[in-house]
Structures are given as C-alpha cells and as structure tokens.
Design a binder for these strands. Structure first.
Lengths: 97, 97
DNA sequence: TAAAGCAGTTTATAAAATAAACTTGATATC
DNA sequence: GATATCAAGTTTATTTTATAAACTGCTTTA
C-alpha cells in the first residue's frame, strides 16, 4: 500500500540540502546554510550523514585563505532522491503544478 | 526558499495514517494497522498525537463485544494535509502522474 | 597583540519513533 | 467453571534522531 520512505531523505533539513544540490552543479557550506536557514552545527551533522550514505560528495577547499566546504550530489544521490519522490507518491496524490 | 514541513505529517507512519484516512469515510484501528504495517503500540501513540493536534477524531465503539477504535479525519486535518503537500512542493518538483 | 569573526566540528540535550511489556475483557478448552 | 489463549489497545522503556550549545583553528581588524 505505502512504499517505504528512505529516512535519510525524510528529514526536513536533509531534504532541503538534497533538493538544493539537485538544482545546482555544486554548493558550498555557507550557501547551503543561508538557503536552508539551518544552524552550522546541524548542517555539519546532516551533510556528514548524506556524505556517509554516498548521496553527496564533499570537497574541502579554500576560497583564498578561508576554508570552503563544497558539496555536490552524486549519481546515487540523484537516484535515491527520485526513489524517495516516487515513494511519496504512494502517500500523496500530486496534481500537476 | 523552502517552506516549513509540519513535523506531525513528516513522519512515515503518521503520513500513512493521514493518507489512508483521507481516502475513506473512517477506518478502525485494526484496519489502519494492517494497511500501514505498523505495530499496535506505535500506531496507538501516533493516533493519539494526531488526535491531540485535532487532525483526526477518535470514537471508541464496539464491534459486537470487541472494542473498536474508529478514526476519522477532521476538516483541520484535511487542511493541514493540503498545506503539507504544498510545502513539499517547495522541495520537490512533481511531474503529473 | 588582543579582540572579534568566520567556517566548520564535536558534544550534549531534547524530542521522537518504535518496540516490548502490560492490561482488560472475550472466547475457547479441559 | 477455572484456566489458558487471544484480540485490541495502552503504557512504559529504549533507541534513534534532530538540534543547539560549546568549542577549535585560522584570519582579519582595532
């Protein structure tokens, strides 16, 4: 009846991160924090989880002398996101936008 | 950028309960348990939360001599569900089904 | 060179999901 | 007609999760 919802996506912040990264080549920590409104601590933890799951890739670089954490969605991340959306449809009937 | 996701809906089981109740006049405890695959304990807790939020109404009746807990979505529940779906759309682009 | 800021991490706390154990009453069994 | 069994839930306890607070290391500014 209802498909399983991947718990990694079923979290407001992580869903926001993934949604953001899906629409963009890559994004840095500060940008994601601003867009999602998350605290740095929370974002750090959630990014780590997504990274460990293989859904995003982290690259630690510098912008001049300032550290910069770049995030990029992986193909597995894209696939898992699509599956999550598909599972959601078993709960919700979306009308066309 | 991203709309807030009502945490009462953003739970797999509660979302399932609400989705189910949305499609049906009312449903009893056992039926919901079967359809969602939830354990009785978990279902009891989640139904209670939805009820306290005013999203569903509980009526304790009997089916013959056997107790029967009937659940029914309220107008506020319907409205909140629609808002949840709307908020989801800020995270996810749904194509027509 | 002290103070203040930025980028991010680690740790501690609060909240949530879930399962296990229990209660109550009904039915079936000996 | 006691006793075992089962169904429908509830309560309690445990685990997981989300989140914020506190911290680290480096940089810039006063």
């Amino acid at each position: 009846m209802f498909k399983e919802l991947n718990p990694l996506f079923h979290s407001e912040l992580r869903l926001g991160i993934m949604s953001l990264l899906l629409s963009v080549e890559d994004a840095d920590f500060v940008y994601i924090r601003e867009q999602t409104g998350a605290t740095a601590g929370n974002l750090s933890v959630q990014i780590d989880k997504l990274s460990k799951a293989g859904y995003i890739e982290i690259e630690k670089t510098y912008k001049g002398k300032v550290p910069c954490t770049l995030c990029k969605i992986t193909p597995e991340g894209v696939k898992a996101f699509e599956q999550y959306v598909d599972a959601l449809k078993s709960y919700i009937h979306f009308k066309d936008e």
